[in-house]
Computed example of a mutant assay.
Amino acid sequence: MTNPSTPAPDLLAWASRVLGARPAVRDVSHPRENSRVFQLDLPGDVRFYLKISPKAVMYERETLALRHAAPALGAGGAPQLRASSADHLALLLTAVPGRPLEQWTLTPAEEARAHRRSGVLLARLHAAGDLSGPRRAEAEQALQAAADGADRHLRAAGDRLTAPEQKLVRSLAEQLRTLPPLPLAYIHGDAWERNLMWSRTQQRAGWIDFERSRFATAVQDFVRMACTTWADRPDLRAACLQGYGRDLTAEEQHALKGLAALDAVSCLAWGPAHDDPDVTARGRRTLDRLMAGVAA
Score class of each variant (00 low, 15 high):
93 L>W: 13
98 G>I: 00
97 P>Y: 03
264 A>V: 13
202 Q>N: 05
124 R>V: 01
188 H>N: 03
236 L>G: 07
244 Y>P: 10
159 D>K: 13
27 D>P: 04
13 A>R: 15
143 L>S: 10
257 K>F: 04
148 D>L: 12
273 A>F: 03
86 A>F: 04
100 P>I: 00
234 P>Y: 12
81 L>K: 13
57 V>G: 09
13 A>Q: 15
98 G>Q: 02
252 E>F: 06
221 D>V: 00
98 G>E: 00
76 G>L: 02
49 Y>M: 09
189 G>T: 04
38 F>L: 03
44 G>N: 06
195 N>C: 02
58 M>K: 15
49 Y>P: 09
61 R>G: 02
19 L>V: 11
207 W>I: 02
271 G>A: 08
79 P>T: 15
26 R>Y: 00
29 S>M: 05
182 L>R: 09
71 P>Y: 08
262 L>I: 06
283 G>Q: 10
236 L>F: 08
199 S>F: 01
260 A>G: 12
243 G>V: 00
262 L>W: 04
21 A>D: 13
76 G>D: 04
246 R>G: 05
99 R>H: 01
97 P>N: 05
286 T>N: 14
228 T>Q: 07
293 G>T: 14
149 G>M: 14
216 A>L: 01
9 P>W: 02
115 H>D: 01
106 L>N: 02
194 R>I: 00
196 L>Q: 05
241 L>Q: 09
29 S>K: 11
201 T>G: 09
265 V>E: 13
154 L>I: 13
10 D>P: 11
44 G>I: 03
183 P>M: 03
174 E>Y: 05
281 A>F: 02
205 A>R: 07
219 V>Y: 04
23 P>R: 08
155 R>N: 06
85 S>C: 07
290 L>A: 13
52 I>S: 06
58 M>A: 15
124 R>F: 00
157 A>V: 08
146 A>R: 15
279 V>F: 09
153 H>K: 14
88 H>L: 06
232 D>E: 14
293 G>C: 15
209 D>F: 02
91 L>N: 13
151 D>T: 12
1 M>V: 12
61 R>H: 08
210 F>L: 06
210 F>S: 07
31 P>Q: 13
175 Q>G: 08
1 M>E: 12
191 A>R: 04
168 L>H: 09
219 V>K: 10
153 H>A: 15
44 G>F: 03
164 P>H: 07
285 R>G: 15
12 L>F: 05
170 R>Y: 10
251 E>G: 08
4 P>N: 01
88 H>M: 07
95 A>R: 14
93 L>F: 13
24 A>N: 03
114 A>Q: 01
126 H>F: 03
181 P>T: 01
106 L>C: 00
76 G>E: 05
